[in-house]
């Protein structure tokens, strides 16, 4: 490990966990929330004759999952560089 200090090490891990937490909340909201629990509410917004809740359950949640994974990879790369622990050759 190549952290400059113990504080740095803690800060890096805390920032990683915070980012993960926010992204996992979004992950849960689009699938369990929009797709299942909140479907009756969201279906008030029409999509393809049925509703936004149905669309999130069968399409939308998957697109959001994709966004989450690529966003996390990009953000973590920036964080790695900021703390000098990246794995660039």
């Amino acid at each position: 490990m190549a952290f400059r200090s113990d504080e740095d090490k803690k800060a890096y891990w805390r920032k990683n966990l915070n980012l993960m937490f926010v992204l996992l909340v979004i992950w849960a909201v689009v699938s369990y929330g929009f797709g299942i629990l909140l479907r009756p509410v969201l279906d008030a917004i029409p999509v393809g004759g049925v509703g936004l809740g149905f669309w999130f359950a069968q399409q939308g949640s998957i697109y959001v999952f994709l966004g989450i994974v690529f966003f996390y990879a990009k953000k973590m790369r920036e964080l790695d560089r900021e703390f000098g622990v990246d794995d660039d050759e």
């Binding site: 699938s31 797709g35 299942i36 359950a57 069968q58 949640s61 989450i68 994974v69």
Partner: peptide, 25 residues
């Protein structure tokens, strides 16, 4: 999906959402 309709959404979300856990955790 053809025969279960909306209820089959669990497979669509379940089998893709696992990759978020895999990638992040």
């Amino acid at each position: 999906i053809a025969f279960k309709g909306y209820d089959a959404s669990i497979f669509l979300m379940g089998w893709t959402g696992g990759y978020v856990l895999l990638a992040l955790c």
